[in-house]
Amino acid sequence: MASSNQFHPAVPRTMTDLLSPEWLTRALSARYPGVRITRVTPGPVVSRVSTNARFHIESDDGLPPGLSPDLCGKGYFSDAGWSARQAGVFEVFFYRHLAAATGIRTLHTVYADVDENDQHGVVITEDVVAQGARFLDATSDYTPDQVADSLAELAILHAATWADPGLGAADWLTSRLESYSSSRGVKEIRGNFESEIGRGVPEEVRDADRLVAAHRALAAQARTAQPWSVIHGDTHVGNLYLDGAGRPAFLDWQLVQRGPWYIDVGYHIASTLTVEDRRSAEKDLLRHYLERLRAGGVDAPTWDEAWLGLRRGIVHGFFLWSITLKVDPAITTMLQHRLGTAAADHDSFATVGV
């Protein structure tokens, strides 16, 4: 499962290039030999850091079996996104090397590649909205039963990659947690906590310096933690969608890397549920995750190890959302409240020695 050094030379630089019938014909022909795209109908576009565009393809010859006519392209095409384009490299590698191999429920890709010169990663997937899927965010209702389902998906990912020697040698999966406090930290956290966005963060965890120190300590511990697995790295509810059958699936794999399981699990439980639901359900949900890990053939952590891990994992999510700036304030406010309250409830800073 190690990463490949083979890159496609024609990765598009603009969304206009991606949506051209000529480029799509070349890009899709590797997987669908003989395909000839003759018409492309653009659909809705969402551009934040990355740009996501839905579109419909047609062929005078008919599309080959297995190729959906409704697709979605993702790349870093805007001026604002170009500087962050390397994040797409990790997502491309996940889809190329791990999505099918692990079996976790996620988007089905028809193209995923990186330009070797500028390190721009581009992914084209089936358009799950056209298949009846619904994307979520922090304001979406998400129940403990649904969290149990998404934890089961994380257990599939973790069990499939648990201390895998081949993945341990993959450079693209090297832990990057320590880098997240290199560009943003105390200034951004104080700005959030002193504004309306941070009004729901409990007093006992409002110290920006301590939060940065806690995340750095967590990152240092995670780099050498044993056992490790491949983790999603950003498991809030906004990185989930419900497929046409109502089942949760993960997307947005820019933070995929090696790390301890609890980075995903503590963050996920604390961010997806209301404070009240999390307090009443978190122990049962953690037991459920451990059961699914064992079902995947893993010698799961003991309960005491797992409970400590869950408390630590909360720090990662709380830090990420405390440094977040350019997101709908309603979402940032809710996630800072949920994760901050969980960090206070569990004295999470103390679990990493801060």
Rank of each mutant, 00 (worst) to 15 (best):
L177Y: 15
L211R: 15
G88A: 08
H215K: 11
Y32Q: 00
L63Q: 05
G81L: 08
D264E: 02
E282Q: 11
L240I: 10
H268K: 11
A2F: 10
D243S: 10
Y95I: 06
L325S: 12
Y262I: 01
G296W: 14
G233Y: 05
L242C: 06
V123Y: 01
L285F: 09
T143C: 04
V35P: 10
A133D: 07
V327M: 12
R85H: 08
D243R: 09
T274L: 00
T14Q: 04
R134A: 15
A330Y: 00
P69G: 08
S175T: 13
H97S: 11
G198A: 12
P9D: 06
D328N: 14
S175C: 14
A138V: 03
E196D: 15
L151F: 09
F94I: 03
V315R: 01
L285I: 08
H97T: 09
G296L: 13
A270F: 01
I124D: 12
D209V: 11
T38S: 15
H236Y: 11
L308F: 00
D207R: 06
E22A: 15
T14Y: 00
V35S: 07
V129Y: 03
V315P: 02
E305V: 06
V256W: 03
V129F: 05
L320E: 13
L273A: 04
E276F: 02
E188S: 13
S182P: 01
L290N: 08
H337P: 00
V114W: 10
I104D: 04
V35R: 07
D277K: 01
S78R: 07
M334T: 12
M334W: 00
G121R: 08
E22P: 01
L107Q: 12
L28K: 08
G297A: 09
L151T: 11
L177Q: 12
P9G: 07
F135L: 14
E58I: 02
S348H: 01
K326V: 12
A2W: 05
G317L: 02
D70T: 11
W172A: 00
A84Q: 14
Y180H: 13
G233M: 02
L286K: 01
F94A: 09
R206E: 03
F93P: 00
G103E: 06
L242M: 11
R105I: 06
V129L: 13
T25K: 10
Q226W: 07
A343C: 11
G259V: 02
R31W: 05
P12F: 04
P69W: 00
L63A: 03
G233N: 03
Q6G: 03
R36H: 14
L335P: 07
S150R: 13
T302C: 06
G66T: 04
V265H: 03
H158M: 07
M15F: 04
P65N: 12
A213S: 14
L320C: 12
S179V: 02
S78K: 09
P248K: 09
T102P: 07
Q254M: 09
I156E: 08
A342Y: 01
L211C: 14
D304Q: 14
A219P: 03
S182E: 15
A160G: 10
G43Q: 06
T14K: 02
G185A: 05
A208G: 09
G246M: 05
P144Y: 13
A80D: 08
R247V: 12
E126D: 15
A213Q: 14
R39D: 15
T102W: 05
R105C: 06
R287I: 11
